[in-house]
């Protein structure tokens, strides 16, 4: 589904991603872990099409297409979803209007008719249930005045509405207490099918108790320095990132 080959990204002259390769197949869950500043969020944003920095090398192929040629909105309509680490507040734009516009853009792209108001509201109700969002929240402006937990749940709610092929969840667990974490993870798991894939970006292993990855990659200093199965996450939890850092640094000394 997604192939990243030797991706290098510079921001303001500083190389942030230093040659990343990753292959995500249909139905897989990949976890990307790493300490702060290792380039995790940059990778997520680049995949979603945010214009910042410069891609100096590499190639990203998604569903057989060159992703770099696509606008963010087209990536979304092709099934890529980014769950933001810091969801944006948009005063004056109602959640209902926002979601209806987004959903209908997706439908139009697939050659389907716009959804009727009653069908749309029914769908909203259904999906809200999934992440236990209070009904009041969707009548408000996008993320405005939402608590940290509500914002994260709102991301998963949007994901549920848009049913992406590839979801990239950037630190969806940060700032969540354990109950909220369970709700969010449960929502993600319910949306999982054999047809779609997920990239979970996280700092802590905690989330991976609930969303069980097929692969775990450790990103450090702009490179994937270690890949393994879910046991790698547990090992990291046990030994901490210093273990990886030492490992990497000792390699570079040799």
């Amino acid at each position: 589904m997604l192939q990243i080959e030797n991706l290098k990204v510079e921001i303001e002259g500083k190389e942030i991603l230093k040659g990343i390769s990753l292959n995500v197949k249909k139905g897989e869950i990949h976890a990307i872990m790493g300490p702060n500043g290792s380039g995790k969020s940059t990778l997520a944003a680049v995949l979603a099409g945010k214009e910042f920095g410069e891609i100096t090398n590499g190639k990203i192929t998604y569903m057989g297409k060159d992703l770099m040629d696509m606008e963010p909105e087209d990536r979304s309509k092709e099934g890529i979803f980014l769950g933001f680490q810091y969801p944006i507040e948009i005063p004056g734009v109602s959640m209902v209007n926002f979601m209806r516009t987004a959903l209908n853009e997706h439908r139009k792209y697939r050659g389907e008719e716009a959804m009727s108001s009653s069908d749309f509201l029914k769908l909203m109700r259904e999906k809200k249930e999934l992440v236990k969002i209070e009904s009041g929240l969707t009548s408000r402006s996008v993320n405005e005045g939402f608590s940290g937990g509500e914002k994260k749940r709102n991301e998963i709610f949007q994901m549920a509405m848009l049913e992406p092929r590839l979801a990239i969840l950037d630190e969806t667990d940060s700032g969540l207490d354990i109950d909220a974490l369970r709700i969010v993870a449960n929502g993600v798991n319910q949306l999982k099918t054999a047809e779609n894939s997920t990239i979970v970006i996280t700092h802590y292993q905690r989330l991976l108790d609930y969303i069980v990855p097929d692969f775990v990659h450790v990103l450090y200093d702009g490179k994937i320095v270690k890949s393994g199965d879910k046991s790698l996450a547990l090992e990291l939890e046990d030994k901490g990132y210093d273990w990886i850092k030492k490992d990497v640094e000792s390699v570079s000394y040799e």
Binding site: G49, P72, E73, S76, F81, L82, I90, F98, A102
Partner: peptide, 17 residues
């Protein structure tokens, strides 16, 4: 970017904002 990342085109996103 937030609006576009949900599939909303530039013209519509500008209008919404």
């Amino acid at each position: 970017f937030y609006l576009k990342s949900r599939g909303i085109n530039k013209t519509e996103a500008r209008l919404m904002l």
